[in-house]
Computed example of a mutant assay.
Amino acid sequence: MGIGHPEYASTMYLLGKVLSQQGKDAEALIEESIRILEESGLGESPICIQRMRYLSTGWDSFDTTNAAELLTMTLQTMGKLKESEELLERCLEVRKRILSEEHFQVCIIFNVSRDL
Results as ranks from 00 to 15, higher is better:
Thr72Leu: 10
Lys80Ser: 10
Glu86Trp: 01
Leu81Lys: 07
Ser40Thr: 06
Glu69Gly: 07
Arg53Ile: 06
Leu75Asp: 03
Leu70Tyr: 09
Cys48Ala: 10
Asp63Ile: 08
Ala28Ser: 04
Thr74Glu: 15
Leu55Phe: 07
Tyr54Gln: 12
Glu69Tyr: 14
Glu86Ala: 03
Asp63Met: 12
Thr57Ser: 14
Met78Leu: 14
Ile49Gln: 11
Leu71Phe: 12
Glu31Ser: 03
Leu29Lys: 07
Ala68His: 08
Ser33Ala: 14
Phe62Arg: 13
Gly43Pro: 04
Ala28Arg: 03
Asp60Tyr: 13
Leu29Asp: 13
Ile34Trp: 01
Thr64Gly: 07
Arg53Asn: 15
Ala26Cys: 05
Arg53Asp: 15
Ile36Ser: 02
Leu87Asn: 01
Ile49Met: 12
Arg51Pro: 01
Gln76Phe: 05
Gly43Arg: 00
Ala26Lys: 04
Gly43Gln: 04
Lys80Leu: 12
Ser61Lys: 06
Glu32Gly: 00
Phe62Lys: 12
Leu75Ser: 02
Leu70Ile: 05
Leu70Val: 04
Leu71Arg: 12
Phe62His: 13
Ala68Leu: 12
Leu70Met: 12
Ala67Val: 09
Ser84Glu: 06
Ile49Leu: 14
Ala67Gly: 12
Asp63Trp: 10
Gly58Glu: 14
Leu70Ser: 13
Gly41Ala: 06
Ile47His: 05
Ile49Ser: 06
Glu69Ala: 08
Ser45Leu: 10
Ser33Trp: 08
Thr74Met: 09
Leu29Ala: 07
Glu83Leu: 02
Thr77Glu: 15
Met73Gln: 15
Gly43Lys: 01
Asn66His: 12
Glu44Ile: 00
Thr64Met: 15
Ile49Lys: 10
Ile30Arg: 13
Leu37Phe: 03
Glu38Ala: 00
Ser84Leu: 01
Gly58Lys: 05
Glu27Tyr: 03
Glu31Asn: 04
Glu83Asp: 11
Cys48Pro: 06
Glu85Asn: 04
Asp25Cys: 03
Gly58Asp: 13
Ala67Pro: 11
Glu83Cys: 00
Met73Thr: 09
Leu42Gln: 09
Ser45Cys: 07
Glu85Arg: 05
Ala68Asn: 10
Glu69Arg: 12
Leu55Gln: 04
Thr57Glu: 15
Ser45Trp: 10
Ser45Asn: 11
Ala68Arg: 05
Glu31Met: 03
Glu69Ser: 11
Leu29His: 08
Arg51Trp: 09
Thr72Trp: 09
Thr74Asn: 11
Ile34Lys: 00
Ala68Tyr: 09
Glu39Arg: 04
Lys82Ile: 08
Thr65Ala: 07
